[in-house]
Design a protein around this nucleic acid. Structure first.
Length: 283
DNA sequence: GTCCAGGCTCTTT
DNA sequence: AAAGAGCATGGA
């Protein structure tokens, strides 16, 4: 039995919404009030009843400070929501529908590989591939009720993977993207560790040097692992949102980013997440 | 069978 | 600069 983080009166937090929000691929919903997730080399078991949350670190390796950082508990979402819900009815509906979403602060390396896999793919398959990769190349962490949990492989662990082994994890033609990206980071052609300190544009350009990383994937990586809430990832769903809700049909990425920043503000990435969650679950 | 999924790369205008 | 083809895979 590991340590248990307990906090009462937590507003704008729903572990179920977070688990199915599409920003993290290693959470499973056990029931209405319980989710289990692999976070770095630990298993987190979250129980939530209303605004009371209990988060158990299975191995005891994750500190309370790291838990608060991971779940973005120190950001004032009430303030952000207040700002967003006055803008239009669609956004207001989206915000009230997903008002328990938090933008997670996940591991940069894991997000790079995860979102390379995400391209032209669907969430259940992305989850399955990441699980297979972790079982094959990561390390055993522990088990809960017959289920075994494995860490996401490190850079050096994944550098041992061949194209065929990657392909056997169900990543399809993305095998070579992963293979080349692992090689580029391993050989220092892209210095991943500098990315969290960079401004948004520089960070995006640095990540786009990697194989299989374009604007959308780079923005997801930055939003979900580097606290870049000004990143506005544009996928097929967001294109639908822009067209149907905002009558915005331009495909130019810098024009879209300008619109997002001007309309939604500096936290446009958070607004994007509310809208994404809303349209995906109601259509 | 066809269409689509948290797109990217490479080639052709 | 912009547009199009091709890409693995599985579920609807």
């Amino acid at each position: 039995m590991g340590k248990v983080y307990v906090k009462n009166n937590v507003k704008n937090f729903s572990i179920n919404q977070i688990a199915e929000s599409g920003q993290a691929f290693r959470w499973e919903q056990i029931n209405e009030s319980k989710c289990i997730g692999v976070v770095n080399d630990d298993i987190l078991i979250v129980n939530q009843h209303g605004d009371k949350i209990e988060i158990e670190s299975k191995t005891g390796k994750t500190s309370f400070e790291e838990i608060e950082q991971y779940f973005d508990l120190n950001r004032n979402y009430e303030e952000i929501i207040k700002e967003l819900e006055g803008k239009d009815e669609s956004l207001n509906n989206a915000v009230s529908y997903g008002n328990g979403i938090r933008i997670l602060n996940q591991d940069l390396w894991e997000m790079i590989i995860s979102f390379i896999i995400s391209g032209n793919n669907n969430i259940p398959r992305i989850k399955k591939s990441i699980d297979l990769i972790s079982r094959k190349f990561g390390n055993y962490i522990g088990s809960i009720e017959e289920n075994n949990y494995y860490s996401f492989p490190t850079i050096s662990e994944l550098s041992c993977a061949s194209l065929d082994e990657l392909r056997s994890c169900g990543v399809g033609y993305r095998d070579k993207y992963i293979y080349n990206t692992v090689k580029m980071i391993n050989e220092g052609q892209v210095n991943m560790n500098e990315v969290p300190e960079m401004d948004l544009l520089s960070a995006r350009n640095e990540l786009k040097k990697l194989s299989g990383v374009g604007d959308k994937v780079a923005d997801c990586i930055l939003l979900f692992s580097c606290q870049q809430v000004g990143a506005f990832p544009v996928d097929t769903w967001v294109k639908k949102i822009l067209k149907e809700y905002y009558n915005f049909e331009k495909n130019n990425i810098s024009e879209i980013n300008r619109f997002a920043n001007e309309y939604f503000g500096a936290c446009c990435g958070i607004a994007q997440q509310y809208l994404f969650y809303y349209i995906r679950n109601t259509k």
